[in-house]
Design a protein around this nucleic acid. Structure first.
Lengths: 345, 345
DNA sequence: TACGTTTTGCGAAACGTTTCGACAAGCCAA
DNA sequence: TTGGCTTGTCGAAACGTTTCGCAAAACGTA
């Protein structure tokens, strides 16, 4: 690989002049500049990232903190990563995929100590997150996909949960439903702190109340078995419910099976929609399920973009974006079976 | 961040001695070594990757070439990436997620010219792949997840397609089926060169022949509509078929819908199995589908491991591994409806 | 013609490592 | 005591950039 020195020799200038010309950091006479650029082109010169980073303290490398799959990874997490990598690439940055294990903070200490990365992208953020706390304290630039309970002035891109719940409720109410149930993720060691579960739960309750819908919100399921069981409990306690919103696609499998076992049909007897599952997954069900698709790629893109903005523009007001979900209507949405007498069913 | 110089000062030795002690590249007196190590620990010293890479020409960074999603990415591709990152991390390496666009070779030229990566991990390898050709020619160390048509001496980890087809056929034959159909991926610009589609097609035909099963292998579908249509064609032309193996989960959605529309049931009237879909996806269907789950994580791990071996041990015989799939039996497999008279059905 | 000012280019230092030749000290045999 | 080895440590150079003080050249003005 040819170095800047080769370029300088070929253009018959000093190395420093070549550097200035190529980076535009100092004025260089037009003719000289042209000569240097041509020499660089002819040699196929590529600046060495390491040498550059060593002196400039900027590597243009971002790290994406990738949590160990806690509950089976989905397309969503995947899209964060690919979209972030794409966005980074477009702006001349690189993305390091950095898996996390038992001791995220120690690993973070190691990772940032390497002098390899300019900033960190954090995903699967918990309401109280030791990683973001450490990063803030250590003064390492970072942005979040998701957000902590008190994101204050921290850059982040997250789902607009308020709008998501409102959209879902509007969809159901628009079809004539008067009563709905929300199946949240199961309470686990993880989801106890998991922002999306908590925010979605709160926002659904609020949106249903706002719209005057009956609301059952204490159901929790993350597996097919749990979904089945939760559904049975629901039917026993709240037979008036005609519409279901389910967070976990795994749970939906169980719910649908339980519905079928009763001889009921979707959407004739019950409307069912997924929440925060990709359309690709939703259409794998039969019937194709309605879903509120998370803007995963958009979040990944935004997260990376914000971090780069921060790195380049230095400080400034916090960059924070809430992005709505996309409602993809499938074949699982319909008017309630008997709107008039539902309460008496 | 403290540098090697700080460590050396604190331990009252020369920088070069500190380096030797910490890396073990030269003998250092035990007492001195201890002093240096302690100083390093006290300062929380982390060697700077850039400085080290600049002189040693080794960064311990691997790039994973990530193709632009051609037909919607699945869990499989995701697992390559995460497993490769994990494996790399365990051996002290980092993984760069490097998206590809229109001109893979030019991008590769750029990427490797940066001096940032020691080696490249290539996935979604086509039978004739310009990327691997370029890499080989340029002398850049690389390994493949998948393989070209003539992998010769190139390191790779791939699915054992022969075994996969044999396992599938054995499963179906074991249930009593005498005739099967294989739904391959649709012929697209991409899949025309796509190893898995081509290898699976060939191996299924061979395995069915070997086992003495009737075989229909000219069906192709990658979407629900195509799946539905292909199924109708199959029923019209080959009513004797009692077992289906489907490559695309999207196509399976269509097939299943078409089956249901005829009033048939799986597995009562027809056995259906997925090929190269994860169990997580397979159990999203109703009934839960049998699947031959690809060893994605294993392939990612192996691919990274091989590359690192090559980087560290220098040359040696090619490292090549074929890994079998895992048969996960769901509720979609059963004995044929009427084994005796199937040909007359 | 001389002087101040601007433009243009140069050289050296620095970034934090690794590598390697040199050399002082210690030891043993002659 | 000398000479030859071994062991342990040091200093300097190198990797490929960027940065920055300086000086040479070019220009305009008095």
């Amino acid at each position: 690989m040819s170095s800047l020195r080769d370029v300088a020799e070929r253009a018959r200038v000093a190395v420093s002049t070549a550097s200035a010309a190529l980076n535009g950091t100092r004025p260089v006479a037009a003719a000289t500049k042209r000569r240097i650029e041509q020499a660089a082109a002819e040699l196929g010169y590529r600046p060495n990232v390491l040498a550059r980073g060593l002196v400039s303290k900027r590597t243009r490398i971002l790290a994406l903190l990738f949590p160990a799959p806690h509950s089976g990874f989905g397309l969503t997490e995947m899209q964060f990563a690919t979209a972030a990598a794409e966005a980074a690439k477009e702006r001349g940055y690189h993305l390091l995929l950095s898996p996390e294990h038992d001791d995220p903070v120690e690993e973070l200490r190691y990772l940032t100590g390497l002098g390899l990365v300019d900033g960190v992208l954090v995903m699967e953020v918990k309401l109280a997150d030791e990683r973001t706390e450490w990063l803030a304290e250590a003064g390492v630039p970072f942005s979040m996909i998701g957000r902590t309970g008190e994101p204050d002035a921290v850059d982040h891109a997250d789902i607009d949960f308020t709008r998501m719940a409102a959209d879902a409720v509007a969809h159901l109410a628009g079809l004539g439903h008067r009563s709905m149930a929300f199946f949240n993720h199961a309470i686990g060691a993880y989801s106890a702190q998991y922002g999306p579960a908590i925010r979605a739960g709160a926002e659904f309750a609020a949106a249903a109340g706002e719209a005057g819908l009956g609301y059952v919100g204490d159901l929790r399921a993350s597996t097919a078995d749990e979904g089945r069981e939760a559904f049975e409990r629901l039917v026993a306690a709240h037979p008036e419910v005609t519409a279901l919103a389910v967070m976990s696609d795994q749970a939906a499998v169980g719910v649908i099976a339980a519905v079928a076992e009763r001889g009921w049909q979707i959407p004739r007897d019950l409307t069912l929609m997924l929440v925060l599952s990709s359309a690709r997954v939703a259409e794998m069900f039969h019937p194709r399920l309605t879903t509120l698709e998370p803007p995963s790629a958009e979040l990944g893109r935004l997260g990376a973009g914000m971090l780069i903005d921060r790195l380049e523009d230095g400080d400034g007001e916090p960059r924070q974006r809430l992005v709505p979900c996309r409602l993809v209507v499938g074949d699982s949405s319909a008017t309630p079976r008997n709107p008039e007498s539902e309460a008496a069913r």
